[in-house]
Amino acid sequence: MRPIGGHVKDIGSTKNLKTGGWRTFKPVIDMEKCIDCGSCWIFCPDMSVIRKDGEYSFNYDYCKGCGICANECPTEAIKMVLEEK
């Protein structure tokens, strides 16, 4: 049932709202060029860059495609690619 007035009893439920659908361009990383500086991970405003054991990937459930990661990348390892269905 939809809660009246949008009241939410389930704390932290914002994570259920997958905002990735807002995206037009998606970031794609070329690990050959990556120098593991962590800039993309630091600057991502939605915590959608996943950094694990020197490997980088993206959480496309929440990445809105803003392109900040690609802009900050010093080696141009991240490219923004038009996402088509």
Binding site: G6, H7, V8, T14
Partner: peptide, 14 residues
């Protein structure tokens, strides 16, 4: 439903 610090909830959400 009402705001209660001992039983938190969100009102006026997105």
């Amino acid at each position: 439903v009402y705001l209660d610090p001992s039983d938190p909830m969100t009102q006026g959400a997105f």
